[in-house]
Design a protein around this nucleic acid. Sequence first.
DNA 1: CCTTTTATACTCGAAATGAGTATATCCGGC
DNA 2: GCCGGATATACTCATTTCGAGTATAAAAGG
Lengths: 300, 300
Amino acid sequence: MTTGLAHAELIAVLSAVTGDEPRVMTVRSGNALPSGPFELEHRSLQAGLREWVRDQTGHPVGYLEQLYTFADRDRTRENAEVRTISISYLGLVREQAAPGARSPGWHGWYEYFPWEDHRRGRPDVLSCIVEGLQGWVAAEPARREHRQRRVDFTFGLEGAAWNEDLTLQRYELMYEAGLVTEAGSPAHDGQGREMFADHRRILATGIARLRAKIKYRPVVFELMPESFTLLQLQRTVEALAGLTLHKPNFRRLIDQQELIEETGETTSETGGRPAKLFRYRYAVLEERALAGSKLPLSRN
Amino acid sequence: MTTGLAHAELIAVLSAVTGDEPRVMTVRSGNALPSGPFELEHRSLQAGLREWVRDQTGHPVGYLEQLYTFADRDRTRENAEVRTISISYLGLVREQAAPGARSPGWHGWYEYFPWEDHRRGRPDVLSCIVEGLQGWVAAEPARREHRQRRVDFTFGLEGAAWNEDLTLQRYELMYEAGLVTEAGSPAHDGQGREMFADHRRILATGIARLRAKIKYRPVVFELMPESFTLLQLQRTVEALAGLTLHKPNFRRLIDQQELIEETGETTSETGGRPAKLFRYRYAVLEERALAGSKLPLSRN
DNA sequence: CCTTTTATACTCGAAATGAGTATATCCGGC
DNA sequence: GCCGGATATACTCATTTCGAGTATAAAAGG
């Protein structure tokens, strides 16, 4: 009988931003994402993951969102009778202190994806990657044009702008072209650190999701301390997006959205003129239709 | 041993728009969404669902996107040894003709969610629902204020605008307040048709996802015939959003996005002056960074 | 007290948006 | 053959938002 019996596994992409660097919680010295089986006693998938992370790492998880579920025939198990279903989650945590029982490791996103950080200009690795992709483009003459357009679009070449949201598409394109490898294949140097099985792909999914989400939902605040300066907030967004932002316009955007309010205090730890401290207005969660309509509505 | 053995089940929300009415494919005379077990011979979850739908209904599925995965302890199975993991997908199909072996049924979204269709003004059911919700708000004095804000925001009361994207939140709020029921509980009249198990909740998830998505990704075209008029396109978007749109501005929006091009032909089936026919420019898929940055970028 | 550094405030033209009006082209009846 | 009803398409205009840049304020250090 072929009825769908499967192992269920939960995998977490837990991120924080410390010192203007976005980081992810890892196990096995940075080679894998934390994961564990979904057990019978768990109330729900989300609850299962929460408990599991708390037990393993001592970290409280604030925001938690499902990322993706997939089932591949053959991964670690050779057994064809039972398949593994992997359910991945994206979680945001405020700090990385307080390590629990088996203290987790934290690693910068851009160790795994060095081409994704454009804060100090276009990374050098990119020229290397694009060169490799050109080989792939040329490899199949029939699809040449199509592949070229795909590369140009995904990596922001030929007049197209770099789109930070396309992290996953870029990774998948590189994977298709044989420029990056998953688990166990021969390594490519300088194109980012590898991870166990498809964990690097899952991390790419998480990064892409978070980069898209910060634009229309106030999730950045899950990563901020209780009070913060406007520049700290900007640096955090920049770290996630891998881009530098226009300071005056960023501030205008923030305050016209009325997401934050002054605490009344200031800090002079920043060097020059003391900066006002702000806090997130939790009230917005239930107050406003965040992300307006974008459809041209009619009266009546 | 408590290791995570589970049944995997695939559930599909397949939607089409016919005659300006958004519809969903159902089985059991509209009481359930099509679903089936994930089998060992399937290459992947998505492939499994595709095959399965084709076999069962003879329908080709174009666009297909994962919706949500959940695991509940006790649904149909009383057995505590094995749990069911349900993986739901949203699919868009172009037509509803050509029924396959066991021809599927099609039912309008708004049979299940009559309060979600605002094209002909605020539906009457809404006053009924809001009244019911007021009872729930008053029921627990300690949380009164919080609940009231949540109701006002979710249903667009007290100056807040109706937000068509909140379909799922509205359903969940009504569920929490005991106004709608899932499988087998006593029925509430006039508050929409019920469905088997949690299928109605899954449908709400699909509707919400699609309503959000049409705003920043050109997925509507998956529901359109090869060539169409601008008004047909507008009516389709309106059907999905459950809202009426401003015609001149809708057209401006469409053509400044350069998503479509004229076929050169016209149709006079519409009554008055013949309308130009358009077709979707598939090139856009690989051409442009759809959905611009929204972050205030800086030079350099 | 002047320079450096960071913070905050203001300006201005270009583009997008909300709302409405005007013109074109067909059909059917007279 | 012409006129009104119906639908399609085109244009206008004030307002808001957005990209980009400049100016002023308040601390620290020599």
